[in-house]
Design a binder for these strands. Structure first.
Lengths: 245, 245
DNA sequence: TATGGTTGTCTATATCAATAGACATTTAAA
DNA sequence: TTTAAATGTCTATTGATATAGACAACCATA
């Protein structure tokens, strides 16, 4: 079923990496759910048409990522199924949306500057071009693994000090609450995909060739006034979006 | 500007492949448009922080793809800028949309079967589940390079023989015309992204880790009756979509 | 407790990937 | 015609990748 010849040689991509990627994908799609563990190394080697040692290199890489754990005499157990699910609805919130999918969610503030709005940002936030906006660069982690990197813009006049509030609470929702905005809604979300650039690779701890899911989102207060525009870059092999209407 | 340290080691992805991917990307985004050629090997080696021979391996791979051509004493010329543009509108047509972006467009018929509609296909085509539909598997090429692989379904009762008509004209538009449908419009298009699977890698001549843009499209006749549902898989580094409303 | 199945470790070998340096060949321009 | 700049070719060396085989260590269970 899994078939032979699933990997290509002479392409500049090591076999162990191709195999690691395929096993990670299989784990996240639930292929091995019945057993809760990966097939034996000898079976995998046969399926991929490679030496057992090559499969071991692939499994070692996945163990390094914390996805599997090998136990001598028993087999290779699946530790984490990857791919956090983000429901995208009117009430989309990053931290709360994760729910019990991870034990620990963190949001780190990488940068906090006040600048003039570009034409695009001004349009999204309903401001005049050149109006003052606060830009936050944040990195979100689930169980200490980076999940997404986001750039957010806020009207500076209304949300002065939001950077400090975010640093304190590690949550946009709570930072808004601190600044007198108890509730807000997701107005629009645009989703695209691209290869990760060098900066993304480093911050999200990805390997070259990784895919990003990019979500451009605009939130408004309950009166429909824009309060935030953000561009979030997610490691595509760690998340999925579900759009519910 | 291009910066140092753009490549990562020990990741299972060869440096020459990372560099080839980055140069291909730079070419397609027009970074080298002024000169019409790639920077000298020694400069590239310095920018990427690798040996000149490693850069030569990357350029050799791009030459193999037909993207660049090295000329001794002059430099490495850009032969093709990659990334065909597909405008997606009500009047989207694959072949015509390419326009003068390629010299030769071809559409090869890989498979032509009549089958019963699945629930999903029946819903898209407005048929009862189990109704007879014709499924065509096609591969589209621009200047002999594969661009996309598509699976299309048509109501069998209305479009009997469309496989033969497509094989003859290598165009859905002309095949429709042959069967008495002179015009049609694009009703909906859904776009997603994913890694290429083994079959895609082979058919589209991609390397492992390549991204696909996936477009699910439904066309109707001028009365709004569905005439075609298709799932097209594009090599993401060779195309872009522009959505115009 | 004996056995089969599994992961862990070791040695050996061949090929690919990357670096390093030297020099030839070709082109364009001074 | 000379010179500088660029690609082409060659040799040599090192480390990563992949294969091959053998055996040890461990686990669950019959």
């Amino acid at each position: 079923m899994a078939g032979l010849k699933q990997v290509q040689r002479q392409t500049g991509v090591a076999l162990w990496r191709q195999i690691a990627d395929r096993i990670r994908e299989a784990i996240s799609t639930g292929t091995y759910d019945e057993a809760g563990m990966v097939p034996p190394e000898t079976i995998l080697a046969q399926q991929f048409g490679v030496n057992r040692h090559t499969v071991r290199s692939a499994l070692a890489a996945l163990a390094q990522e914390g996805i599997v754990r090998a136990v001598q005499g028993r087999g290779t157990l699946i530790e984490r199924k990857e791919r956090l699910n983000f429901p995208i609805t009117k009430r989309t919130r990053f931290t709360a949306g994760i729910g019990d999918q991870a034990r620990e969610m963190r949001g780190l503030l990488l940068d906090d500057v006040t600048e003039e709005a570009s034409a695009e940002i001004a349009r999204w936030l309903g401001l005049k071009q050149g109006a003052q906006v606060i830009r936050l660069e944040t990195l979100r982690q689930a169980d200490k693994r980076p999940v997404s990197k986001a750039t957010s813009w806020f009207p500076a006049a209304r949300f002065a000090g939001i950077g400090e509030a975010y640093r304190k609470h590690e949550s946009i929702t709570k930072a808004f609450a601190d600044l007198g905005l108890p509730d807000y809604v997701r107005a629009t979300t645009e989703v695209t995909a691209a290869h990760a650039n060098t900066s993304d690779l480093a911050d999200l701890e990805l390997t070259p060739g990784a895919i990003l899911l990019i979500a451009k989102a605009m939130n408004t207060d309950l009166d429909g006034v824009p309060v935030q525009y953000s561009i979030s870059r997610f490691a595509a092999d760690r998340v999925q979006f579900t759009i519910e209407n």
